[in-house]
Design a protein around this nucleic acid. Structure first.
Lengths: 338, 338
DNA sequence: ATTTTTGGGTTAAGCGCTTTACCTTATTCT
DNA sequence: AGAATAAGGTAAAGCGCTTAACCCAAAAAT
């Protein structure tokens, strides 16, 4: 019991397969009347054209690849959802690839996506910089999202991470904090770098020092954030505020503070980054920097699929959009000096 | 600059394309020596076989569909990740489809997956029962995961939701709670139904009443849980414990309690379901029921791909595995009656 | 030494579609 | 009315691969 093919439809409708094809795609030579007829037969037979076959003929596969560090990370899960929605609404489907930012996985997935002849690929992952760099030469369209890749001259959209960090810094500064630290995830990822750079810069501008030792690289997980914060809180000159380069870390920081008996925001303010649903599950609610995910994804999709051509601006085009500070409960003025 | 094809390799290696094909797949007639040579040429030319073309020849597409309510929901994000990993390790890739449990979306996605000729589909979504039911007749292999679909006689694996609820109930009961309520997400989804059934049953066994009005259906979101709980807390005969059929709801309950000034677990105990990373981000940490996701996914994948045949047991096979109670901080004995 | 096997390789058909070139009939123009 | 043109339709090639049928030389069997 094989699926219905274009031949079945043609035979049933008494026309050539070419006409059926034309009827489906609404192009080529086909009369209005005949077309109706064919369409009717098509759904009487419950015919579904094979994307595989039509892709082989040189057309598109209507499949996209999405490279991210981890779908289980709420921020990327939200991105995945947004991508899925917009892709689906344009007839595309997406193959999600969680790379854990590992070169090997990035490489393997890119190969895979090539073999599957995807129509394009959205890069939100870190790692595999050199592998990704080769993408530029290939016929496979790629666009970065929420990230830049060093030496990859492709279009992309990202939020202004430097600015986001600046927002966080200014908020903390204006609250009166002077001793701060930052929890940074994988520093090889551009967005993370930018975040610490921006934060550092703002403090510097304000005349507040941030030592190298105040920047703690940690594994991008709740545990990672917790461990780092625990260490931090043991220091004699403990910071009064903490900037975390993502929300997993921020949650970890909150846990650590609680375990150490340090009230938040009483004795420690913490600001997260990404505004995922995690920031709304904690107690206190997390003050955080929001990235407009939907908008970002929409733009990236546009760059990847067709849109890229019509507007002016030389390729690669890099769009940057602005993040926003969302003040909730995890930040407050530092306790007065005893 | 088109990608390298099997013809290019054949020409370059001075053999027929059939030999190249055989060399690639390691079957058919091909000498060890010649094979090596061809392989060498292949990667000199950086040749990647086209999955599209080979799929057309009647082979598999090495692509799976995953139907879930929403990737942005942490529980399903974790499932998606697990599926992705195991699939990838077997050379498959997966198209994730978030249906929001809506019939229309389920239908649309199934069509899509058919057109793309996926090799199988993993059903973790609710909604579209009648559409899904038709799957049984189609040549498209399907397996349910973490759910059953009414009238869909396909294999599947799920945790024992009834039992999970029982675990929660017993925990609460043993703590001394007598007035309880449950927050239930979409009751059309079997897993949700089972959860409330199990809970109700346990209470009944223990001689504790659970009125219909104590079962609150709510939108599956933090907001939904919060709203429902807020209402609940306003009642005169307020419950001392709350069982939530998923963690989003539980988080919402926590938020509501905090807003209403009701201490958890002091005046209200809450237990969640799924043990996602949310349960570890809240304060207090959530007591919850854990589903062994990895195991579930591994089994489901096995059922879907080949494995299904060798072992005994008539199809459809339904595997059920046991959930586990994880006691954290959100549950305690009820306050003594004033 | 001749026949049989077998290992190694090739030719060609075909998967389900798109598309170009071509053909036929109806329409329009002068 | 006859030629030019448009409009609708079709045959057939080809996309990159797999596989069944076939073929041939070298090795084994008699």
């Amino acid at each position: 019991m094989k699926p219905t093919t274009i031949y079945d439809v043609a035979r049933e409708a008494g026309v050539s397969i070419a006409s059926v094809s034309n009827a489906i795609n609404g192009k080529g030579k086909i009369g209005k009347k005949k077309r109706e007829e064919i369409l009717k037969v098509m759904d009487r037979l419950n015919y579904q054209p094979s994307v595989i076959a039509s892709a082989l003929t040189g057309k598109k596969t209507y499949t996209l690849g999405l490279l991210i560090p981890d779908v289980a990370n709420p921020f990327f899960a939200e991105i995945a959802r947004a991508v899925e929605d917009i892709a689906h609404s344009s007839g595309y489907s997406v193959i999600t690839c969680s790379t854990d930012n590992q070169d090997g996985r990035v490489l393997a997935y890119i190969r895979l996506l090539e073999q599957k002849s995807v129509d394009g690929i959205l890069i939100g992952t870190g790692g595999g910089a050199d592998i990704l760099a080769q993408l530029a030469e290939k016929p496979l369209p790629a666009v970065t999202i929420a990230r830049e890749v060093q030496g990859l001259p492709v279009s992309g959209v990202a939020t202004d991470d430097f600015r986001g960090a600046t927002l966080a810094a200014e908020h903390l500064l204006s609250l009166g904090h002077r001793r701060m630290a930052v929890l940074a995830e994988d520093l090889k990822v551009s967005s993370s770098q930018e975040r610490v750079r921006g934060f550092r810069f703002s403090l510097f501008e304000a005349g507040v020092r941030l030592e190298d030792g105040d920047i703690l690289p940690c594994a991008s997980s709740i545990e990672g954030g917790k461990r780092a914060t625990l260490g931090l809180l043991r220091r004699v000159d403990r910071p009064t505020a903490l900037f975390c380069s993502n929300e997993l870390l921020a949650v970890g920081a909150l846990q650590a503070a609680r375990e150490a008996g340090v009230p938040v925001p009483g004795l420690l303010s913490v600001v997260g980054y990404d505004n995922t649903l995690l920031s709304t599950a904690t107690n206190p609610l997390l003050t955080t920097i929001a990235q407009p995910i939907e908008q970002m994804v929409k733009l990236a999709f546009g760059l990847l699929i067709g849109d890229g051509l019509e507007d002016a601006g030389p390729l690669p085009r890099r769009i940057v959009i602005q993040p926003e500070l969302i003040v909730r409960e995890s930040t407050a003025a530092p306790a007065a000096e005893a």
